[in-house]
Structure formats: structure tokens, C-alpha cells
Write a protein that binds this DNA or RNA. Structure first.
Length: 876
RNA sequence: GGCCCCUUAGCUCAGUUGGGAGAGCGCCUGCCUUACAAGCAGGAGGUCGCCGGAUCGAGACCGGCAGGGGCCACCA
């Protein structure tokens, strides 16, 4: 019952079939067994509006690698998937849909609109999860959650009410970041700062009763209409005498007080006079409060000027109003100067609209009592952030955190569970309120604001497990183990989960956070549609296969930004092809199902066989170690190097003479096949987390005990497989083969030319080894004889490799000029190195202070170099 | 202004207790050697940004400088 692989490696032929098989086998679903060691991860929930982009591909590949590794390592493993309702983003998408039909949401009304968004979500919200399947993600789809589903909504209400009752949620009138396009308040972290080239306009304010003018520099002349004061520094000699007088506000012709404010005004900056617009600037708002200046709102929630701005301006967009104010000032001769100026403006990250600071009534979370334990958890190591260099950023943010604006004037989201009666009483309650508990009124309106999306995703690690109920999932899988996500949502999401998790479950929601970098193009540029350097993961999966895409992402993932190039994916598709062909080769000799293969008897193994087992064992050790440290790059590199450059380039070539029957007897052949099967099996299992599809496709044909490689045990290093002696000898064989190939190529011989090799050995053991394994040298170096401890004839080419003196007897052929130069260069290098080594050993301080091993090593190197120089000189 | 990161081969990057400079891709030469031309063998290429310091010894540790990137911060 011999199995075969298709001649060509074509991932599209089997990847989706394999995925369906995994799903049918229910391998993604853990057992509800509290006694088994568990490992759990929750997915960073992608937005329902999302399409899989390369950043998703990265973060989910890394999670899948860890999850598959842990699952195979015997952990009861849960990777819980789901999506985020993504308030603003989703609402915007559906509004655009509606616009195509010529309707806006206000015409539709709140209830109908929300219904439409749900319909949209049902049709398209699953798309991104389906796309994750193409990547091979081994999520437990039976546990898929959505931030707005019933259970999570209950958790949200519970948390809201508890925080309110604990005095950590309050409603207040305050200066907030307002997006005039989305017409909602947003939190501080949602504001992005962008550099803009603009002007600094200098405006003269007359001071009635004097002949003085005060010149004010501003980037926002339109807000002048809402000025309710001018401020100077109390110690500024230039203006000291004007404090307490009034200035005349141009255009509006209103008198406003001149106040002293040492906090707002830096006398060194600009003119030293600041206009104060308490209703439209954060620091002016505070200055207004300090100085008793009134707030005059001249811009409304849509970014248009209000009636208070004056009839001339009412209804104008704020940027139109800016132009008009400047024009009017010019007319009146009060525009003293206009300078080019570059400064940063806050924009809403979702829609790029310039933020308008506005005073409005919003809900806030008092954050400091939540932040303090969250800082402590990272400081005392309860939570570890990798790479650790992110910790200062985390601390810096957490220590300077402001209260969190959680209310949004949107329709799509968790509606705040506050209820108002018509007598003005407010009730905050987990369940809907039918009658006012204070006055009994049945005329109840629920708060229209919804919560910030991140309020619900902040509960994700436990709300998805059934919390606040005490469910089996929650008991078994919470806290989760690792959180893998992009550094860009450290504040948005990670910090909030830590704060809310600690507060509500009393435990950190995870013990490790791995933050991955941004995927960039091959030259480190950010990917963007306008630059045309975007890599679409679904496209490259089609082109190279999911395994190649995953492997490429993994081998770059050290925690830094990832410069991704299609050429690299092509390279790792070639690696997959290599695996395919190596397996195909092995399977032409493997006749027995893996499950029936007998235990290997180490005593019967040849040195070269012990060598490859020692090598895969070292690789196994390295891969496990690197994965433990989240060094995906090291782990994938180790297995890549082993498979291609040790297994394929050397071991398979070394095994060929035996497999093909050119060397040894039938027992030798059977043993070689058994070792090959062993190494292939272990390699596939080592590789599986990185390349799940190809390893499954091949492994199933080996017919192991388990129904899938994904539930086969992950290899662990075993001391019995270490074999330093085998490594020493085979390394020497490799070096000798390379030396012969080298001589052949450098001296212009063809592969058909045969040489004789003379090897000098010191021990009987080594002599026995080289006699036993001479076929390796004969075949791989294409020799016609190997002589151990025989005298090399005159004219042979001498060298020293890995501690062995060798000589190659070449047919008489003119030594080329290139060869002579090469020998010269080589000699030069050796002499320089020898001089360095001698100088070092002559240094008493070195010999005294350096560890003995290092000194010994230097002595050995010195001896080797002297021998090598002597031999090389014979070649001239 | 504060914090973080980067500077090593043509390109992109590894190099974690300081002890003989590495990988992938690219380039050059030779091979269709029966698993793989998505391959095999061989090769060229580096003042490890610059200056200084502690050390017997620095790509690595410390200080400074230069250049690049990122995050945070209410400078009109």
C-alpha cells in the first residue's frame, strides 16, 4: 500500500481540501477538561467591515504558529475567534450603501438604520473570517463571538453599571475632541496628529481708551469670533499696564477683557499675547475657567458657524469662515502680518477630518484607579511585553493618561444603559427600566449615545468566555496565555484589556503580550494604495500558496517592522517545493506505514545516521527554544536551514548510495530507509506550525497513528540523540568533500575527472570510520580512491580541514594562474590570522585573564594555521 | 520637549551571558549528476555610521557625535 505524491507541488490542489478535513475532524475545538494543561489565545477581533490585509495575515499567522505548536505539544488549546462591530467604521460603510440608494440614515430613523447595519453584518461580516481559513488559521469556529452579540452585550452592560456604581463612570460637560464629519465625540487616542503647512495670522486688537494695539498670532482666525478675552503673561513688561483693561474684538466689535495668565501664555512665543476662545480650544477652555471668561460657541457640531458668530458668518463652513474672517480683517486694516507656518493639527483617524474641540456633555471613565494596577501588573512582571522596549511607551502613556471619553453620538453600538424619566431623573441599570425608580414615571427614554467600540473589545478575553457567568469556558480558559497583536493598538486595546481585566476578573487577562511590527514593502516603505506597493495576502496565497506566505511572514517576525517582498515569498515557495520533492524521493523507498515502523535501535546505526539524528535533535531544541521566546524568525530559520542544507544537501545525498543498493546490503538499505522516515516525520512535525498544509498533505501519506499531523506530538529534544563524535566526523567528511569540489572547480576540471584523496588520521577509531564511510567521499566528491594514512605522491595538493591533513592527487594538469593567485590569497589570510593568534598568545595578560578554554582554542587555532600554511606552501 | 528603535555584503536583515564576521535575495563561473533547473556545485563581495572610554580582547558594553524612523506632549 505504497503512497505517492504528485510530481508537481501545487498548493492550490490541496490547501482548501486539507482545511475542510481539519474542520470536519473537529481538531480546532479543545476539550472541556480542566485537568489538562491548557493554552488559550483570543484573536484580536477584526472589524466586520474588514477585508484580510497583510497585517491581518501576519498577526494571524503568528498566532496560528503558536497555537499549533502548543496544541501539538500537548496543551488543551483554544484559539477563540470573532469580530468587532467597529462602531464608526461600520456605520460609515452602511451609510455609504444607503447613499447609493439616495437615502440618509436620518430619513430612515434609528431603528430601521440599525436593522440595516445588522443585515449588512449578516451578509458581509463573516467574510474576513472565511479569509482567515485560507491562511490556515486553526481557530475554534464553534466559539466565534461578535462584540455586539447577546452575551457580550450583557458583559458590557454589567461592566458599565459596576463602574458607574463604583463612581468610575460619570457624565459631565467637558471639552472633548469632536469630529464634525462623524458628528460624534471621540477619545484622545483616536486623534492623530498631522503636520500641516498653514499660516500664522497676526491680528491687531485695539485697546479703547489708549493708543495701543495688541497683536495676536493665531492659526485659527475664524475662532476669533468666539474670543471672550485676551491673555498676557503677568510679568511681561510690555503689556503689564494693560491687564484689567478691555480690548476691542475686530469684526464683532465686542469688548473683551485683557487678563493675566502665566499658564496659558509663554511671553517668548509669538507676540506674547494670546486670544482666548474658551469654547473651541482645550487650553483656552481651561484658561477661561481660571479667569472667569464666558464660553461662546461659534462653531456647531457639523463644523459650521453658529448665529453667535454673527449674521455675516452664520452657516458658513469653518474653513470658509476662516477665509472670510481673514478678508474682513484685511479690509479693516487689522491684519498686520501673515506668515507661513507649519504645525500639527489633530484629525480623526477614521475620516481625516480636522478635530474641533467642543464643549459637550459626555460619559467618561475615571481612569486613574484603573491605570494604577495596570501599571503595577507590567512593572512586577505579571504581564510581560515583548519586545520589552515597548514597556517605557506603555508606562509613559499609562502614567499620563486622561479620563476616557466613552460616549459616541452614533447609532451602531452598545447603547449606554442610562434611562431618563421626564422628571429629569436618571437611572443606570443592567436591565431595561420600565418605570422611574425615583418618581415612578413610566415615561422613560434610554440614553441615545452608544459606547466606544473599544469599551466592548476591552472585555474581549473574558466576555467571550461567558463572563460574568461562571462558565466552563471561563473557568478553564481564562486568563488567556498570550496576546499577539500589532503595536498600533497598544493603547486602544491592550491597555484597556489589562485595566478592565484586572478590575473585573481580578486577574491579568494574559501573561504575555507579543507586539509585532508593521508590514512594509521591501524597501521599508509603508504600504499604501497610492504608492501601489500593497501586497494582497489572498493574491499571494493564490500565487505561492498559504504555506509560503506564512513562512515568509514568520521568518521576518522578530518584533520589528517587516520589509516584505514578493521575491521572498517566491523563495519560500521554492522551499515548499524542496520539501515536496524530498518527501517524494523518500517515499519511493518507504514501503511501510509510519504507524508500523519499528523503534530505531541506536546501537545498529552508522555514524552518518547518528549524525543526522543528532542534527535534527539540535534543530528541534533550537526551534522549541526560539518559539518559547517568540523568535519566529529564528525558529523558522533553524528548520529551513536544517531541512534544506543539512537534510537535503547532505544527508539525502549521503543516503543515496545505500538506498540505491550501490553500497551495503539489504539490512543497510532497510535501516537507511527507516532513518530517512524518522527524519522526514520529525521534520514535518517541526515544520507543521509554520507550513500546515504541505506538511499535512505529505504526512498523511506516511500513514501515522494520528488522524492528522496537527494532533501528532511536537518533537522535543532528547539527550540520547546528541552525538558529538558523529558530528565531528561527518563535519570532517563534508569539509573534505568541499575541498575536493573546490579543487575541481578552481583548477578547471570537469565533474567527470576523478581524483584520489589521502587522509591522515591519528586514531584507529578515525581510521575505521573513514574506511567504513569511504563510499561517501567516493560518491559525493567523485573520487576513484581514498587512502587512509598512506603517503601522498609528489605533486598532490595538500590542505588541513577540520583537524585532518589531506592531500588530493590530481591528474597532471597545468596549474592555472588563478589557482596560484588563490593559493597566495589563502596563504596571506592564514598568515595574517596566524600573526594575530601569535600576538595574542604572546600577550601575558591574555593568557592570564582569558578563560582557559579560550586560550586553548587560540593555541589549537595557531597549530592548525601553522599546519595549513605548511601544506599550502607545498602547493606552490 | 520626553521616550523608543535603527545604522553590519549591491538589497533586506540576523548576530542576547564580549573570545576565529553570517543568512536570504541579487551577482559571477560550471553543471539538464534519475527527488527537485522552483534545482546542484563552486566563487566574488564587508574600515560592522563616526569619535572616544573601560577591557588582555568590542559588531556587541559605556559616553559623545552624525544620519534615518516611530510614539507621546494643549505651544497660540
Amino acid at each position: 500500500m505504497k503512497q505517492e505524491l504528485d510530481k508537481r507541488y501545487e498548493p492550490a490542489q490541496f490547501e482548501q481540501r486539507i482545511y475542510e478535513q481539519w474542520k470536519r475532524g473537529e481538531f480546532f475545538t479543545p476539550l472541556l477538561d480542566a485537568d489538562r494543561p491548557k493554552f488559550s489565545i483570543v484573536i484580536p477581533p477584526p472589524n466586520v467591515t474588514g477585508r484580510l490585509h497583510i497585517g491581518h495575515a501576519l498577526v494571524n499567522t503568528l498566532q496560528d504558529i503558536v497555537v499549533r505548536w502548543k496544541r501539538m505539544s500537548g496543551f488543551n488549546t483554544l484559539w477563540l475567534p470573532g469580530t468587532d462591530h467597529a462602531g464608526i467604521a461600520t456605520q460609515m460603510v452602511v451609510e455609504r450603501e444607503l447613499a447609493k440608494e439616495g437615502v440618509n440614515r436620518h430619513e430612515l430613523g434609528r431603528e430601521k438604520f440599525v436593522e440595516r447595519v445588522w443585515q449588512w453584518k449578516e451578509s458581509y461580516g463573516q467574510q474576513i473570517l472565511d479569509q482567515l481559513e485560507r491562511l490556515g488559521s486553526s481557530c475554534d469556529w464553534t466559539r466565534t463571538r461578535f462584540t455586539l452579540d447577546e452575551g457580550l452585550s450583557r458583559a458590557v452592560r454589567h461592566v458599565f453599571v459596576k463602574l458607574y456604581e463604583d463612581g468610575l463612570i460619570y457624565r459631565d460637560l467637558a471639552m472633548v475632541n469632536w469630529c464634525p464629519f462623524c458628528r460624534t465625540a471621540i477619545s484622545d487616542v483616536e486623534v492623530e496628529f498631522q503636520e500641516r503647512n498653514t499660516k500664522l495670522w497676526h491680528i491687531d486688537y485695539l485697546v479703547p481708551g489708549t493708543d495701543r494695539k495688541l497683536t495676536v498670532a493665531t492659526t485659527r482666525p475664524e475662532t476669533m469670533l468666539g474670543d471672550t478675552g485676551l491673555a498676557v503673561h503677568p510679568d511681561d513688561e510690555r503689556y503689564k499696564d494693560l491687564i484689567g483693561r478691555k480690548a476691542l474684538l475686530p469684526i464683532a466689535n465686542r469688548e473683551i477683557p485683557i487678563v493675566a495668565d502665566p499658564i496659558l501664555v509663554d511671553p517668548e512665543f509669538g507676540t506674547g499675547v494670546v486670544k482666548v476662545t474658551p469654547a473651541h480650544d482645550k487650553s483656552d477652555y481651561e484658561a477661561g475657567k481660571r479667569n472667569g471668561l464666558p464660553e461662546l460657541q461659534v462653531i456647531d457640531e457639523s463644523g459650521h458657524m453658529t448665529a453667535a458668530a454673527g449674521a455675516e458668518f452664520e452657516g458658513l463652513d469653518r474653513f470658509e469662515a476662516r477665509k472670510k474672517v481673514v478678508a474682513r480683517l484685511e479690509e479693516e486694516g487689522l491684519l498686520r502680518d501673515t506668515k507661513d507656518y507649519t504645525h500639527t493639527v489633530g484629525v480623526h483617524g477614521k475620516c481625516d477630518t480636522v478635530i474641533e474641540p467642543m464643549i459637550s456633555r459626555q460619559w467618561f471613565v475615571k481612569i486613574e484607579p484603573l491605570a494604577t494596577p495596570a501599571i503595577e501588573a507590567v512593572r512586577n512582571g505579571t504581564i510581560r511585553i515583548i519586545p520589552q522596549s515597548w514597556e517605557p511607551t506603555y508606562f509613559n502613556w499609562m502614567e499620563n493618561i486622561h479620563d476616557w471619553t466613552i460616549s459616541r453620538q452614533l447609532w451602531w453600538g452598545h447603547r449606554i444603559p442610562a434611562f431618563y424619566c421626564d422628571n429629569g431623573h436618571m437611572t443606570v441599570s443592567e436591565s431595561d427600566v420600565a418605570a422611574c425608580p425615583q418618581c415612578g414615571s413610566a415615561n422613560i427614554r434610554q440614553e441615545t449615545d452608544v459606547l466606544d467600540t473599544w469599551f466592548s473589545s476591552g472585555l474581549w478575553p473574558f466576555s467571550t468566555m461567558g463572563w460574568p457567568d461562571d462558565t466552563p469556558d471561563y473557568r478553564i480558559f481564562y486568563p488567556t496565555d498570550v496576546l499577539i497583536t500589532g503595536f498600533d493598538i497598544l493603547f486602544f486595546w491592550v491597555a484597556r484589556m489589562i485595566m478592565l481585566g484586572l478590575r473585573f476578573t481580578g486577574r491579568a487577562p494574559f501573561h504575555t503580550v507579543f507586539l509585532n511590527g508593521l508590514v512594509r514593502d521591501e524597501h521599508g516603505q509603508k504600504m499604501s494604495k497610492t504608492k501601489g506597493n500593497v501586497i494582497d495576502p489572498l493574491e499571494v496565497i493564490e500565487e505561492y500558496g498559504a504555506d509560503a506566505v506564512r513562512f515568509t511572514l514568520a521568518i521576518f517576525a522578530s518584533g520589528r517592522d517587516i520589509p516584505l517582498a514578493k521575491s521572498r515569498m517566491q523563495g519560500y515557495a521554492a522551499f515548499a517545493n524542496k520539501i515536496w520533492n524530498a518527501a517524494r524521493f523518500a517515499m519511493t523507498y518507504i514501503e511501510m506505514p509510519l504507524r508500523e515502523a519499528k523503534q530505531i535501535d541506536r546501537d545498529e546505526l552508522k555514524t552518518v545516521e547518528r549524525w543526522i539524528l543528532s542534527r535534527i535533535n539540535a534543530t528541534t531544541h533550537d526551534v522549541n527554544k526560539s518559539l518559547s521566546a517568540f523568535r519566529f524568525d529564528e525558529a523558522s530559520n533553524a528548520i529551513y536551514h536544517f531541512f534544506w542544507h543539512e537534510l537535503c544537501d547532505w544527508y539525502i545525498e549521503m543516503a543515496k548510495p545505500v538506498l540505491a543498493g550501490r553500497h551495503g546490503d539489504d539490512a543497510d538499505r532497510r535501516r537507511a530507509v527507516r532513518v530517512l522516515l524518522e527524519v522526514l516525520d520529525r521534520s514535518l512535525r517541526l515544520l507543521h506550525p509554520f507550513m500546515p498544509f504541505i506538511t499535512e498533505e505529505i504526512w498523511q501519506k506516511l500513514e501515522g497513528v494520528e488522524p492528522s499531523i496537527m494532533v501528532a506530538p511536537y518533537p522535543i529534544a532528547e539527550e540520547v540523540l546528541e552525538d558529538a563524535e558523529a558530528e565531528r566526523l561527518v563535519t570532517a567528511v563534508q569539509a573534505m568533500i568541499t575541498a575536493v569540489r573546490n579543487a575541481r572547480a578552481e583548477r578547471g576540471f570537469t565533474p567527470k575527472d576523478r581524483f584520489k584523496l589521502y587522509i591522515r588520521v591519528d586514531s584507529d577509531r578515525d581510521a575505521t570510520f573513514f574506511r567504513d564511510h569511504e563510499y561517501l567521499l567516493l560518491e559525493l566528491a567523485r573520487l576513484d580512491a581514498v587512502r587512509v594514512n598512506a603517503e601522498a605522491p609528489e605533486g598532490a595538493q595538500h590542505d588541513v580541514v577540520e583537524g585532518f591533513h589531506i592531500a588530493i592527487e590530481l591528474p597532471a594538469k597545468v596549474v592555472t594562474k588563478e589557482q596560484l593567485e588563490r593559493t597566495q590569497r589563502e596563504l596571506e589570510k592564514c598568515r595574517n590570522e596566524l600573526a594575530a593568534a601569535e600576538a595574542r598568545l604572546a600577550n601575558e595578560q591574555f593568557v592570564r585573564n582569558a578563560p582557559p578554554a579560550v586560550v586553548q582554542q587560540a593555541q589549537a587555532r595557531q597549530a592548525e594555521l601553522r599546519a595549513r600554511i605548511e601544506k599550502l606552501q607545498q602547493n606552490q
